[in-house]
């Protein structure tokens, strides 16, 4: 059986959360979305951006849950076809495993310093992850939590 310690109850959720987070290295529960879905960004040409996700074994991303916005405007996200999975959540659904890249066309008419990227997936047979929202700094191409 999979498990991990919560430790004793602290007063603040921040401390409580830190304890839980520290315990996350045990094989108890599937790792967090950030641990299984690794997003990087690079730009080979001005006006375009390449996003890459690496997914841990046993996890997958939904194609229709991948999106990007710049200054609140939805952008065209070009993805290669995925595989159709008879998904326990959504039925027959296009998904990605292992690695996927997305080309983002950056419209000249929209300005902004940070791209917002959203994606969502599951760990097979155990758990569905909440949506992940990341921010890509368009100058440094560093990826961070969108709330940072």
């Amino acid at each position: 059986m999979r498990r991990m310690r919560l430790s004793h109850l602290p007063i603040s959720a921040a401390v409580f959360g830190a304890l839980l987070s520290a315990a996350a290295a045990s094989p108890a529960v599937p790792p967090t979305a950030d641990e299984v879905f690794r997003l990087t960004a690079k730009s080979d040409h001005p006006g375009s951006l390449l996003l890459s996700w690496t997914m841990a074994p046993g996890t997958y991303l939904y194609r229709d849950r991948i999106s990007a916005t710049l200054s609140g405007r939805p952008l065209d996200v070009r993805l290669e076809p995925g595989t159709i999975q008879d998904d326990p959540v959504f039925g027959p659904t296009e998904i990605y495993r292992g690695h996927i890249e997305a080309w983002i066309g950056m419209p000249a008419s929209v300005s902004g310093d940070r791209l917002t990227v959203s994606y969502q997936g599951c760990a097979e047979h155990t758990l569905c992850y909440p949506p992940v929202v990341k921010s890509v700094d368009l100058k440094t191409l560093q990826v961070s939590d969108a709330l940072d």
Partner: peptide
């Protein structure tokens, strides 16, 4: 705050679980 991984998560005493 608890950095829960997703659903389901069951907190049972001092332990945390997913599907059981």
């Amino acid at each position: 705050a608890l950095k829960l991984e997703g659903t389901p998560i069951y907190l049972i005493g001092p332990f945390r679980f997913s599907t059981l």
